[in-house]
């Protein structure tokens, strides 16, 4: 797809970084590049973390929740409750409109699909007269829904983030984006029980099987071979969409799950840019990683107004995405 965006703006970002730091074994660091992950304490639920990040985003720009026309919650993790819409809980608790013509959605696009969703939100903002301000948020708590935070080659960190999007003037402009799916490898991850093939049952609960894990190791192995070339393709497409070249980029943000892939990709593209790479101190952040990098870029004073960020997201997933943003 070409010329995908029509004047999309990031109005604000909110982020919640958990307070508990958990250091991983040195062997993990050597294999993955992950030194530690951040963990929410048991006071937090998925919605509570998301609500904090949403309120943070609203507060930054002094926006009332009642001015949001839409709230989308997207997460590969577990919600507060099975089958209950997190988006409705969050919208209610942040002070959004309690009833009426309000759009709330719970989406799923794997653990690396936020940028594609942002493109689809862009189309709503331009195509639906009733949607002018849309919040997208995510929240991940892995203590009880992972195999001790390990997911294939990587280790999962907790976090929550929210972004407010519109197409009005102002805000930080999204210049271009790109998304690439290797759909043939769609079974890399899922929850081991909870679907129709193998539903939640007493034995499975007792065995601790209700966790997010690798479903098909062949799919994972095949996808590994695509990561670097796929990333370069996505980067090229995002730059083309933005009418930019790599030399125009000031900052590269890379969201990956393992240091060697990050290093290979950076090696191919780096031309003196500052790099935001959160892997070592946060672990693999999945959907929340988007908010973490954008938050760092927009609110860390070491990055100046007018700077341009190229964000590349590589998941423990079959999707690779990239976005270019001007501060």
């Amino acid at each position: 797809m070409n010329n995908m965006l029509v004047d999309l703006r990031i109005e604000s970002v909110g982020l919640v970084k958990p307070s508990i730091e958990y250091e991983l074994d040195k062997s993990v660091f050597e294999k993955t590049g992950i030194e530690k992950v951040n963990i929410f304490d048991d006071e937090y639920t998925t919605s509570k973390a998301a609500i904090c990040s949403a309120k943070d985003a609203l507060k930054r720009i002094d926006m009332a929740a009642s001015d949001l026309d839409q709230l989308i919650f997207q997460s590969e993790g577990m919600s507060d409750y099975l089958y209950m819409d997190s988006s409705k809980t969050i919208m209610l608790e942040i002070g959004g409109r309690e009833c009426g013509n309000i759009y709330t959605y719970d989406f799923f696009r794997g653990n690396n699909g936020i940028i594609g969703t942002i493109y689809l939100i862009n189309n709503q903002l331009t195509g639906n007269p009733e949607i002018n301000y849309s919040m997208l948020c995510s929240s991940l708590l892995w203590t009880y829904h992972s195999k001790n935070r390990q997911l294939g080659d990587t280790y999962l960190g907790d976090g929550a983030g929210a972004v407010i999007l519109s197409c009005r003037s102002g805000g930080s402009r999204v210049l271009g984006l790109s998304t690439l799916s290797f759909s043939q490898y769609n079974k890399i991850t899922a929850f081991k029980i909870g679907g129709t093939v193998n539903d939640i049952n007493v034995a499975g609960v007792k065995a601790g099987d209700f966790i997010y894990d690798i479903l098909d190791y062949d799919h994972l192995a095949s996808m590994r071979e695509q990561i670097v070339t796929g990333s370069l393709k996505v980067i090229s497409q995002a730059l083309s969409e933005s009418n930019l070249k790599m030399k125009d980029i000031d900052v590269i943000g890379i969201l990956g799950f393992k240091k060697n892939y990050n290093a290979k990709i950076l090696n191919e593209i780096l031309e003196g840019q500052t790099v935001i790479d959160l892997l070592s101190k946060n672990g693999y952040l999945g959907s929340v990683g988007f908010f973490a990098v954008i938050n760092e870029f927009l609110y860390n004073e070491k990055f100046s107004k007018g700077d341009i960020l190229l964000l590349i997201m590589i998941g423990m997933d079959y999707r690779i995405e990239a976005m270019v943003v001007r501060k």
Partner: peptide, 25 residues
């Protein structure tokens, strides 16, 4: 058109299995 009645959306739910009350607890 839609009428979204957020105020009462928690009418029905499954108490266990999510992050509010994980199975391990």
């Amino acid at each position: 058109s839609t009428y979204n009645y957020l105020k009462y959306h928690a009418m029905a739910y499954i108490p266990y299995g999510g992050t509010a009350q994980p199975f391990q607890k």
